[in-house]
Design a protein around this nucleic acid. Structure first.
Lengths: 180, 180
DNA sequence: GTCTATAAGTCGATAGAC
DNA sequence: GTCTATCGACTTATAGAC
């Protein structure tokens, strides 16, 4: 797992970084190749089209998501709090891949839209296994999504008005968890 | 106000529609001109650059927002419920402009990021004038943003899992409004 | 496997006729 | 005010040398 990164891994990593930090428009194959330290032709040997590059990012998301679901299931505070808390975190593998695929989806990439739907549905399912009230679970899910949507704004990485007083916000989530 | 639409208005309307329905990448000047029924040169007479086209969309947002703030202030159910309810609505002027500017912001357009910040701040201010608990107000705001972020997915205009049972979700908002 | 060179198309913007 | 024609830069993808 910690073997020297293959060229393919370096390219995907560069592509994901470009998507997160510079936006979808800036994440061209040429810029990705330069950031990965290879030439355009070298990149195209590993990923014959831009579509395959996007597929690589989606596969990375699924892999990170699978690992995170284990953590979310067994979180001491419960899945709901874990979910909202991690919605404001950045830097982890899952966050990087999620934001990268979100950028692709926002740009109109259909497979990315479908992949995000799948991931979010599995989050909602897990929260609903903890929070019996269906609509309270949805409200909690939406708070997490709202937080993520805010941090996903280009330029304003986590500099939002929320997030700072996260613990206070989590108390509101607790109120939703405790049935009416 | 209901005079025959000028070419300028037709162009802005076409541009906003392209942004909403096809995404930022597809909203090229050529495609916008075609949808507005003019040539590329004709478009460039009214908007000498793409940046000016984006400014037109932002101005449309501010104009619609100003009118909506009056409705939100005087809504019978109160600003908070009004806000969450209208987060799932599509087709109105405000929603169209907001989504269009959101697409620009997600693509990295800084003036759009700033414009959205202003609009959202004014919403939060109004909600906080009704909901005294600061963090309950933030939670309500995030629910509305989460709903909007969901409907803003290209292709899946309002076909999300929420929104259908909006009245049930609004009961959760009511719970947040009534202090703990 | 990785490179250079280049084809083929698209985008924003300019120039000038009408 | 609106059009056609075109430029230059950029982007994806191909071809072929090493």
């Amino acid at each position: 797992m910690s073997r020297p990164p293959s060229a393919k891994e370096k390219i995907i990593d560069a592509y994901v970084s470009m998507l997160c930090n510079e936006g979808e428009r800036a994440a061209t194959m040429e810029a990705t190749a330069a950031k990965a330290g290879v030439s355009k032709g070298g990149l195209l040997y590993h990923f014959a089209s831009k579509e395959l590059l996007a597929q690589g990012a989606i596969e990375g998301l699924f892999k990170s998501h699978e690992e995170d679901m284990e953590l979310m299931s067994s979180a001491p505070e419960g899945p709901a709090i874990y979910f909202v808390r991690t919605s404001t975190m950045i830097g982890g593998d899952l966050d990087r891949y999620f934001l990268a695929v979100l950028r692709l989806a926002q740009g109109g990439h259909e497979p990315s839209v479908i992949a995000l739907d799948q991931v979010q549905q599995s989050w909602l399912d897990l929260i609903r296994s903890e929070v019996s009230d269906k609509y309270a679970a949805e409200a909690i899910m939406l708070i997490g999504e709202g937080l993520y949507y805010q941090t996903s704004m280009p330029g304003s990485w986590s500099t939002g008005t929320f997030g700072k007083d996260l613990e206070h916000l989590l108390k509101q989530v607790q109120r939703l968890k405790n049935g009416s």
